[in-house]
Design a protein around this nucleic acid. Structure first.
Length: 300
DNA sequence: CAAAATTCCTGACTGC
DNA sequence: TGCAGTCAGGAATTTT
């Protein structure tokens, strides 16, 4: 379930640990993790010998900038982990699908129990002179000057990233009013908002005092401004606490450390327990095939 | 065209 | 103890 705060937690560790390192060898032990490439060898060839120049994030994607202008994109799916290893002798965990070995002797392992996640190398499109063609998608929604969106066409479809895009409440209001979706469906649609998933949609809607099935176009200006303000507030708090590790313990950062935000969750996974604001029991329903937690009193 | 449903996957858990 | 059935959900794909 890694969402924006968990992905950002991983990104921050990687930015600290792998920038400047040169990829010596790539091992693909499960081709499904690199399924966008025709063969695993294509993926390996694009990475071996490259030096890592940057580690960015857009929505739930980790975007690793390489010294030739290409980008390694990592999406963790449901159960993906990026784990550091001091050397090749450290035993590889079960479900290790990809290993990047650096010339410094250490490794990054991509581990993913359910294989919903993936890695791929994005090659910027060029015109017939070999000049890179910039792609500006969704200028009407996204911010401007966003490097990743411009250079990685595979990610150009993503909607507003709450931290990467500078979108004011009025522009946010225009997005909400252009749709007739339930709020939770809208918040978790990556083409509209990039980075939110089931946990933080529930938490944000609770903090904003809004019901999950409110139709987006029905919100008042006050409600829209409250929601707009709440999104980065909740996410920033979760990032500060290293993300959320639920009882399945699948989320850990590259150093193997779990998050701490699960102790601060207001409604998610708390069904039957008293609401921390009004003491009424927290409710759970299935909404669009997804478990949804809420306080009927505080969000009514 | 938008919105809803289906599909992929593995391990934990439930009930018999 | 085993085993079939159910659940978890991000996002691409298919159906309505």
């Amino acid at each position: 379930m890694p969402e924006l705060p968990e992905v950002e937690t991983v990104r921050a560790v990687l930015a600290r640990e792998v920038i400047g390192k040169k990829i010596k060898l790539v091992h693909v032990t499960d081709g499904r993790a690199v399924r966008r490439h025709k063969t695993a060898k294509d993926f390996r060839t694009l990475l071996e010998g490259r030096v890592i120049k940057s580690v960015e994030r857009l929505g739930k994607n980790i975007v690793v900038g390489l010294d030739n202008g290409h980008h390694l994109v990592i999406h963790l799916g449901m159960t993906g982990q990026v784990l550091r290893a001091k050397n090749a002798k450290e035993p590889r965990p079960k479900h290790t699908h990809v290993v990047l070995s650096f010339t410094t002797g250490d490794e990054l392992r991509y581990v993913d129990q359910r294989t919903f996640g993936e890695l791929y190398v994005s090659v910027p499109p060029t015109d017939d002179q070999g000049v890179e063609i910039s792609k500006f998608a969704r200028l009407s929604i996204g911010g401007d000057g966003l490097n990743v969106r411009r250079h990685v066409p595979e990610l150009a479809h993503l909607g507003i990233d709450p931290f990467e895009d500078q979108v004011g409440w009025d522009r946010f209001a225009a997005v909400l009013r252009s749709r007739t979706l339930g709020l939770k469906t809208l918040l978790t649609d990556q083409d509209i908002m990039a980075g939110l998933g089931n946990i933080y949609a529930d938490e944000i809607l609770f903090s904003a005092g809004l019901m999950y099935d409110r139709v987006s176009e029905s919100l008042s200006t006050i409600e829209i401004r409250r929601l707009h303000r709440t999104i980065p507030e909740v996410l920033a708090e979760a990032i500060k606490h290293g993300g959320t590790t639920l009882s399945d313990e699948t989320f850990v950062n590259p150093d193997g450390e779990p998050g701490r935000y699960q102790e601060l969750l207001q409604v998610h996974t708390r069904d039957g327990q008293p609401c921390l604001q009004c003491r009424a029991p927290v409710s759970k329903v299935v909404f669009h095939q997804r478990a949804t937690y809420f306080c009927a009193k505080c969000q009514g």
